[in-house]
């Protein structure tokens, strides 16, 4: 009650310019702040404490011992993994998978959105959208199960090969096939869902621009090129920045579900390697050093892509 009263009193003589930000005393807003306590506790404990926990990358850590390690060892673990050929192998695998994913999963939703945009039959467009979003809602374990069943020796792909008179291929055990499996299933999972933001952007393009283009004698193709694409360019750039930022964060869970020792050569990525080194084998500090390295690269990639796009095209995330 007191709280509310003081608000009225404060608010009464304040018809000033809206830009002026009033200093609201803590006393009146305590209820609002109290709502933030538990969420802040969550961020502190489960987001920021693990960031500090990365200090074990520079300290010797005993499983079950102190959360922040026992003793400083400096950059010991960093020099260790930088001299570890397996690390460079998995780093290369990560970069290749990330690059292939970016190459296919970034442009294909744009293409699909443009194709959907040309569909004049409403129910048909809606139906294609509904179907193409579906894989997004599946558990990654289910996706992995579907992939394994599809490419199994008795699966559909091998049935097709046999119909063509070819020998069956054990896709899941062939290092040469892993990247194809990974990227094509990634396209299957993400291409439909990826169209949503583009379709939204497409509806915001001013129809007058199309009319003017028509007056200038532009056909559908030239309209797409000169009106539609520039119209969705900001969305494209934003998503490209985000994609570049998560470039190295290839689907850890999917790789973990799909790889096996026979395909490590191409399938093992930084995150799965540090999972095995850290959690399966118990070298926590070594794995934490690798994880910190990866996270820092990710952060620099986002910042770098963002700065680059702000300088060149004037669009940025913040």
């Amino acid at each position: 009650m007191v709280v509310t009263l003081s608000k009225e009193v404060k608010d009464a003589p304040a018809p000033g310019p809206p830009v002026r930000r009033k200093r609201r005393p803590l006393r009146r807003d305590w209820q609002l702040y109290s709502l933030a306590v538990l969420p802040l506790l969550f961020f502190l404990v489960f987001r920021y404490l693990p960031m500090l926990g990365n200090v074990i990358a520079f300290r010797r850590y005993q499983p079950g011992g102190d959360l922040f390690g026992e003793q400083w060892v400096g950059l010991r673990y960093f020099t260790m993994f930088l001299g570890d050929p397996t690390f460079w192998q998995v780093f290369t695998n990560t970069a290749v998978l990330g690059a292939l994913t970016l190459l296919f999963c970034f442009p294909l939703p744009i293409v699909l959105a443009l194709l959907l945009n040309e569909v004049r039959t409403r129910w048909l467009k809606g139906f294609v959208q509904t179907v193409s979003y579906l894989p997004h809602f599946l558990s990654i374990v289910v996706v992995a199960g579907l992939i394994l069943q599809t490419v199994a020796v008795d699966g559909v792909i091998n049935q097709g090969l046999q119909a063509l008179g070819r020998d069956p291929v054990a896709f899941i055990q062939e290092p040469g096939w892993f990247r194809t499996l990974y990227v094509s299933s990634e396209v299957w999972q993400t291409v439909g869902w990826g169209t949503i933001l583009y379709l939204a952007a497409l509806t915001t393009i001013d129809t007058d621009l199309y009319d003017q283009a028509k007056v200038d004698g532009a056909n559908r193709w030239r309209q797409t090129w000169h009106v539609t694409l520039p119209g969705i360019a900001p969305t494209m750039i934003t998503l490209l920045i985000l994609n570049i930022g998560t470039f190295l964060a290839v689907g850890f869970e999917k790789v973990l579900l799909l790889y096996n020792p026979l395909t490590f050569e191409t399938a093992d990525v930084v995150s799965t390697y540090l999972y095995r080194v850290g959690i399966v084998s118990g070298s926590f500090s070594y794995a934490a050093a690798i994880g910190l390295f990866e996270a820092l690269i990710g952060l620099f990639l986002v910042l770098g892509a963002n700065t680059l796009s702000r300088r060149t095209v004037g669009t940025s995330l913040w």
Partner: peptide, 19 residues
């Protein structure tokens, strides 16, 4: 900012597991 920063940088698997 406290919330948004965690979108771009997180503690990683090992520190979370230890925690």
């Amino acid at each position: 900012g406290i919330a948004v920063f965690t979108m771009f940088f997180n503690g990683g698997l090992i520190p979370n597991y230890v925690l």
